[in-house]
């Protein structure tokens, strides 16, 4: 198993490198766009030249990338075009905020998926299944920013239960922090739960038709324990892999929802970078979000290896 983990860790490095290259290319896809964006389209050619020279943008893209990547590895994401402030510390300050939001939203999604999905799978083709499957498709189709708008209208403005947005650090006031995170987590999590509910359901149906389920039933186990002890754990293995992919979609959603709820995380930093035409900021924020996704995928892969004893043997 240790060899397996090592192999997975080794392939992780090239993945990160290629991903960062893709981002770098995406940001610089149009030559000279960075300077044009920073200075505006009416800038004189001399001004553009000076700006490009000042920031090293007149050099070949490969060299720019290597320099950027070399620094980024050490947490140095360069200086902001906008205010010549180092980007790294800003990212570091915002990262926990986004991690908290994504984590809570993922809990909402996975919680809904495991409970509703298992219920639907257990009552395969009966009424609860039909209802839950329809709800799952509904959940998966709601635009998260519209759901957020509706939630704010209902729970913040109409009922006045929760704040409309903003962020309080948990070190300052944990309750206020959690209250502020509830609506964004729901808006983000519910949308992701749509697919996950269906995956969990299919997965559970498959497991429930396995022969060892009948063995367990013949022991006189209750239905609840049958699902919890025998079906759920087996069904979780395929579910985990898909949920890691879905976590990627979910993390992407912070770009929109942090804006809607005025949460100062990495997602809103992406938009700050775009609105201010501040490419070092944009690149840093995008890279951090991508890293969150890649690291989660890695962790889930490793977890799946440990949860399923057969995989250990198959690959050893």
């Amino acid at each position: 198993m240790i060899r397996l983990i090592l192999i997975r860790l080794l392939t992780f490095v090239p993945t990160v490198i290629v991903a960062s290259m893709v981002l770098f290319v995406a940001v610089n896809v149009v030559p000279g766009s960075a300077s044009k964006a920073a200075l505006g389209i009416y800038a004189t050619p001399q001004a553009v030249k000076r700006f490009e020279h000042q920031h090293g943008l007149d050099r070949p893209l490969v060299i720019q990338y290597v320099e950027w990547a070399g620094k980024a590895v050490r947490g140095n994401f360069g200086m902001s075009f906008q205010n010549a402030v180092a980007v790294g510390p800003e990212v570091k300050k915002r990262l926990p905020v986004t991690l908290q939001l994504a984590g809570m939203a993922f809990l909402v999604a996975v919680g809904l998926a495991i409970s509703l999905g298992a219920l639907a799978g257990f009552y395969h083709q009966r009424l609860p299944d039909v209802c839950i499957t329809s709800i799952a498709t509904l959940f998966g189709s709601v635009p998260n920013f519209w759901l957020a708008t509706l939630l704010i209208y209902l729970f913040s403005l109409h009922l006045g239960w929760l704040p409309t947005g903003g962020y309080v650090p948990y070190s300052e006031d944990l309750v206020a922090n959690l209250r502020g995170m509830i609506l964004p987590s729901i808006a983000l999590g519910v949308v992701s739960s749509g697919l996950l509910i269906r995956i969990m359901r299919t997965s559970l149906i498959e497991v429930m038709s396995a022969h060892f389920i009948e063995t367990a039933q013949s022991k006189g186990i209750s239905n609840f324990n049958l699902v919890i002890r025998h079906a759920l754990r087996n069904a979780l293995i395929p579910f985990l892999t898909v949920s890691a992919v879905e976590f990627g979609f979910l993390v992407g959603g912070v770009v929109i929802l942090e804006d809607v709820f005025r949460i100062p995380g990495i997602g809103s930093l992406v938009l700050v970078g775009i609105i201010n035409r501040d490419y070092p900021v944009l690149l840093a924020a995008a890279m951090v979000i991508t890293m969150i996704v890649l690291v989660t995928n890695l962790l889930v892969d490793l977890l799946a290896t440990m949860i399923d004893p057969r995989q250990v043997r198959a690959r050893n």
Partner: peptide
């Protein structure tokens, strides 16, 4: 079931939960 009447199931290779 499983107490007073128990079952030795068929298809031994798939009758135990792999996890």
């Amino acid at each position: 079931r499983g107490k007073a009447i128990s079952v030795i199931p068929q298809d031994a290779l798939h009758a135990l939960n792999p996890v």
